[in-house]
Amino acid sequence: MGAGHAHRLYLPGASPVHRLPPQCKLVAVLAFVLLVVATPRERIWAFGVYALLLAAVTVAARVPFRTVARRIVIEVPFVAFAFLMPFVAEGEKITVLGLRLSESGLWGAWNILAKGTLGVVASILLAATTEPRLLLLGIERLRMPSLITQIATFMLRYGDVVTAELGRMKVARASRGFEARDIRATGVLAKSVGALFLRSYERGERVHLAMVSRGYDGRMPVLYDVGATAMQWTLAAVLPLAAALVALAAWMSP
């Protein structure tokens, strides 16, 4: 949402989690998050166990806890929303510390905070242990249409170039005394966006011609393939299987 995306998220390493094929990790994370979302919010202990599972993965991946904590910031806008919820939600009111709060609102806030945070941490671990390039190979292995992965590849490859171009425009504006103060700045900013689009699109045209001159016919050659063995699938399945047990227990318990 509001936070920037500037930092690089991949932490190079050779832990067992790093070495798992990307498609296995993708399926594991997706299954894990789905199970978390499907868990009833009243079973507070279940979310504690989920957090422990993720902590175990963090340790196994040798990702510093501090790094994970710092990156959770992306969630902040929704934390703000969650804190508002007990005040605006309907239902029975209870008094906490002298404030009249809605009981179901409190549950709602807890639900979003717990599930949202677990989801964010799972995604952070995925991105921290998998190179972006490999993630794309992973989603291609999971039968994502190749056109989508190609578009995503180009976006990743040129994202930094285009962002840097925007940064240079910002420096150029600032060095001419421009500062976005109010609505009158729109025209200037929009001209930058327009120029950025033209430069990006024309770069795309040049890239396409360069590809055609090297024999591109609509599909990318496979230079590097990531196969997964049954052993690796089993290893990746440990997290969602453990989560499935927790979810099952949460559903069964009174």
Binding site: L147, I151, A152, F154, M155, Y158, V162, S200, Y201, M211
Partner: peptide, 17 residues
């Protein structure tokens, strides 16, 4: 066949914008 590079660069543009 220009889809991939042009849509990719436009996606990078949207991302930057």
């Amino acid at each position: 066949d220009r889809t991939a590079p042009l849509a990719g660069l436009t996606a990078a543009f949207v991302f930057a914008a």
